[in-house]
Amino acid sequence: MQLDSVHDIQKVYRELLQCMARPGKIADTRETAAKADLIRECHPATFLVAQTLLDAEVTFHVLGDRAENIRRKIADYTFAAHAPAEEADYIIAPLCTSEPELLEAMQACKAGTLENPHDSALWIIESGALGEPAGRKLSGPGIKDEADAPIALSDAFVSTRNRKTQEFPAGIDLIFTDSDGGISCIPRTTAISAKEGSAWVM
């Protein structure tokens, strides 16, 4: 079955919106993702999110060894232009991206300004299965009391991300995708706790 660019994309958007509004929530887009298995090098859900948000009016950047092929296909499908990590509106980190490369791009990417905090990069990060015990808690707007982090995050990742969001409202927002159509978000307002049982302090 072919991806319906009106109705399937609307469904993905609504899931994405609820995920952004409820950090830690994991949406299941498996059914739609099955129709979006078009780029071998990335998760179908990654392609779905790109299809939902990208067009010729925005730019994107792909990290990792297989960037070239993903970049070409996303540009073909969405007409968005590729841009350096420092300028891109959307940054895609495929599963194969090394942590040093990801963190370097995260340090360099757009976080917006206090006047225009929306002029910031939105990240699409591929991960292993969402919803496995991750050992961290999330809190902040959209979360009643506390939520489990959808995915295990390294201390280096969390500290780089926290540095990038410390001048709120400037900051970055993260979308995670897994190979099974799972989507989850951590916007800039979310506080990520230290790993349970570790002495690391935010």
């Binding site: 919106l17 509004a21 929306h118 900051g171 307002t189």
Partner: peptide
């Protein structure tokens, strides 16, 4: 067109809405 707007317009509104949710109370143009 389904729901009046063309898909390009919806996309733009959707992008702005996601930012609005990520920055509660901030007016996204």
């Amino acid at each position: 067109q389904f729901a009046f707007l063309d898909e390009g317009s919806k996309k733009e509104i959707r992008r702005a809405t996601l930012k609005a949710v990520a920055i509660p109370g901030y007016q996204v143009p």
